[in-house]
Each structure stands twice: as structure tokens, then as C-alpha cells.
Design a protein around this nucleic acid. Structure first.
Lengths: 229, 229
DNA sequence: GTTTGATTAATACAAACGTTTGAAAATTTG
DNA sequence: CAAATTTTCAAACGTTTGTATTAATCAAAC
């Protein structure tokens, strides 16, 4: 029987324990090389840990993968729910301001990147491909985590744009998800983005977090309000 | 020295040759399990070919990967260029109709799925994750293939929406790419889409090709015209 | 100071990976 | 038909993969 250790009972922040070091290394390498492309050997070497450390702390490589995703995804989604809660509480029965709803969805994901760990940046690249991830365990986790959010966004959008046909919302949310994740990915590796270097292609300006957020919100708001076809 | 055979000088369409069978199997398995997740052994078994067939016909697994992408990507992008050419020829000096520009970009990708081979559907799922692909050869191919398109779309959008600041276009194109690929992916596997089954989540309607296309165009057009912030 | 439990470390293992090889089979060419 | 070329095939190669094992090291509790 495998005894899974507690996540450091005292949590000394001075020296990062092996568990966290593994997750940090894994997050970065997963983002760079993909879930299958990053080997346990590479991860443990980067984390300056022993080869067996992954299996000891997370049971299996899949366990590490799930832990990496959970660590970032949970706080993001909790913050989203909290912001939506606050929004709906304040609005009472009046229609929600669409831009605020979009802000509640997008801001936690975008701001998550600056919590001190520079590895946070790597996670957004993971996020943008998380929906296509073949790993069934990851797919289930993502589905669970995002299920709540999708539901909340759905009702919020209906309250924000009452004229929107209910079975249209699914597609608008799909569009929103797609543009958000794609753009954040492009933004997070802006300097190495191949499209940013194509001569004759649109010359982009490096944006700060807030500017990207505002552009995303403006784009999505216009698209969701849409023109009645 | 390796003699790479010609792609079947006569191209008998009756019985599919090994080369094409390999690409079909690979396309499907790449879409299902990822580029690294689909093994040469699995591919050759699915294609009912010998294990060495991939290395004989494509040199290496990477060669097969590139061939799979090229086969679909090239005709799509050629059609896009042709449609944009026709559009600009007809418009002369007048501003291009934005919806038509978006149609020229989106339609070839969406309609490509119905060319008889049901595997065409698998490719769109490949497309949606092609931008995050860690494989450097794939990244370069994608960059080459999309480079032309991005440039063309850029100038077309500027001619369609003259009030748009030039360094905004990059981001709007990013949003467009993101929403398009994400939505097409969600659409192509609509029946197994986890989000379509979440109780309380937006109930989507299965769309036909044209309806999806029109929704995408409407959404992107509204977003790109945007509200001047 | 010894015992106890948690962690690290080095090594081993079987399975799966992409690729190579050389001979058989099939096909095309003269 | 014979010669030449292309394609298939079965077997094996050397790596690399994730995981299991067993002993050594460490920190705290008694």
C-alpha cells in the first residue's frame, strides 16, 4: 500500500519541497513538449529530484498531470464563480452588464499568470490545448472543472442579453472560449510567436495584461450581442 | 540513399495504395490520440500495412506527419487565396465586404470536410491543435502555410474595415483563428462533446455546415467591426 | 539514543517506441 | 520471358518509456 504524504504539514516556504518542484518543472515541460513529450526523467532532472520521486509523490505520471492541472485550474474557477456571484448579487433582478460577465470569466485566467511564480505563464499554454487533450483522465478533470463554469456563464449571458436565443448561447460560449485561449496563448509567448515575425503580416504591439483583457472583452461582447441574422 | 517513390504515377483510385492508406489511418489516429500518442505500430496496423511501411514511404514518422498536414492544408489555403483574389478583383477600389472576407477564410476549412473521405472530419481536430504543436517541423510547416493566409487576411481586413487601426488587426485575427478552430473542433465531434451533455448547461442544437459557418461569420464580423473603446 | 515513519537514492525491469535490415514478393521495364 | 525495380514482409535492433524494488538517509518522537 502506497502512503501518499501530506502536502507538507508545516509548509515551509523557504525551501521548495520536492512535490512542488516536480509540479513546477512538469508544468513548464508539459507546456513546451506536450503531456506525452515530457518524460518523467526530464521532469525529475529539471526539478533536481530523483527519478522515482514522481511515482512516490503522485503515484503515477497521470497523477502528476492531474495535480498540475488542478493546482491552477481550481483557484481560477473558484475566482470566476466568486466574481459571478458578486455580480448577480449586485444586479438583483436587473440584467447583468455583459462586459462585467466577460470580465468575470476572463480576468481570473489572465491575471493568474502573475502570482510570483513565473511558471504561471506556462500554464496558460497548457490551458489552450487542454480541450483537445486525448488523455481521458485530463478530459474528465477539465469537464468537471469547466462544467460548473459553463453553466454559470450560460445563465449569466442569458441574463445579460435577454434577447439571445437560449440554444445560441452554446455556440457563442464556444467562440468565446476559443478566442480567449488562442489569444492568451499567442500573447504568453508573444516574443517567439511565429506569426508576429512574418514580414507583411500585421505588426502587433506587445500588450500588457489589462490591454489584452479589454480587447478580448470588447471583441466577445460585440460578437455575443451580435447582429440578429 | 533512400529512394522515395513517386506518389503513384498513375494513381489508381480503385484500390487505395499503401501510401494513402497510411495517411488516412495516421490522420484519424493523430486526431484521436495526438501526434506522439499515435504510434507507428498502431498506424500501420490500422492501415493494414507492414510495420516498416511508414519508414519506406515517408522516411520517418515526422515525414508522415508532415505529409498528413500538407495533404489537407495546401488545398484549403489555395482555395482561400483564390477566393480572396476573386473578391479583391471584383471590389476594385471599393472597400471589401467584411462578411465575404470572413467567408473566404472560413468556408474552405469547413467545407473541406465533405470531400467523400469521412476522414476529412478528423483533420479539423488536428487543425485546432496545430498551433500548439511542440513538433518543430510541424510548427514550421504551419507557419509557412498560414503565413501567406495571415498576410492576405490582414490586407483584406484593412480594406474591409478602413477605420481599424493596423496594429489591432493582429489581435482580431488571433481571435478569429481561435474561435473558428475551437468551434469547428467542438462541432466536428458534437455528439461526443462533453459540454453538450452537461445538465443545466446550454443546450446546443446540432448545426449543419452552413449554419455553423454563418454563425461564425456573424460573430467574427461583429467582433472585428467592434465597438471603438 | 534509539526507534519510527517519511523521503531520497540507485538500480532493475518489462514494455513500447521508431527505425533498420535483408530476403521474399510483386510490379514494371526491356 | 528475363531483367530490373519497387514494394512488402518478418524479424531484430538499440533506445527510451513509466514503474517497481530495495536499501540508504533523514527528521522527529519517545
Amino acid at each position: 500500500m502506497k502512503t501518499v504524504p501530506q502536502p507538507t504539514s508545516h509548509g515551509s516556504p523557504v525551501t521548495e519541497d520536492t512535490r512542488a518542484a516536480l509540479m513546477d518543472a512538469a508544468e513548464r515541460l508539459f507546456a513546451e513538449n506536450g503531456l506525452e513529450g515530457a518524460s518523467v526523467r526530464e521532469i525529475t532532472k529539471t526539478a533536481r529530484a530523483n527519478l522515482g520521486a514522481v511515482n512516490y509523490h503522485f503515484g503515477t505520471k497521470d497523477g502528476l498531470i492531474l495535480a498540475v492541472f488542478s493546482r491552477r485550474l481550481k483557484p481560477i474557477n473558484e475566482r470566476r464563480v466568486a466574481m459571478l456571484d458578486a455580480l448577480e448579487a449586485k444586479a438583483a433582478d436587473r440584467p447583468l452588464p455583459l462586459e462585467k460577465v466577460l470580465d468575470a470569466f476572463l480576468r481570473p485566467m489572465i491575471e493568474q499568470q502573475g502570482t510570483g511564480l513565473e511558471d504561471g505563464q506556462a500554464f496558460t499554454r497548457l490551458m489552450s490545448r487542454v480541450f483537445q487533450e486525448p488523455n481521458p483522465q485530463v478530459a474528465q478533470l477539465v469537464c468537471e472543472q469547466f462544467g460548473t463554469i459553463v453553466k454559470r456563464i450560460n445563465t449569466a449571458l442569458l441574463k445579460a442579453v435577454p434577447t439571445l436565443p437560449p440554444d445560441e448561447v452554446f455556440w457563442r460560449i464556444s467562440f468565446l472560449f476559443g478566442s480567449a485561449h488562442h489569444a492568451i496563448d499567442a500573447w504568453s509567448r508573444f516574443d517567439t510567436n511565429p506569426f508576429a515575425r512574418i514580414p507583411g503580416a500585421p505588426v502587433p504591439r506587445a500588450l500588457d495584461r489589462e490591454a489584452l483583457l479589454q480587447r478580448l472583452i470588447a471583441y466577445a461582447a460585440a460578437g455575443i450581442r451580435g447582429t440578429s441574422t
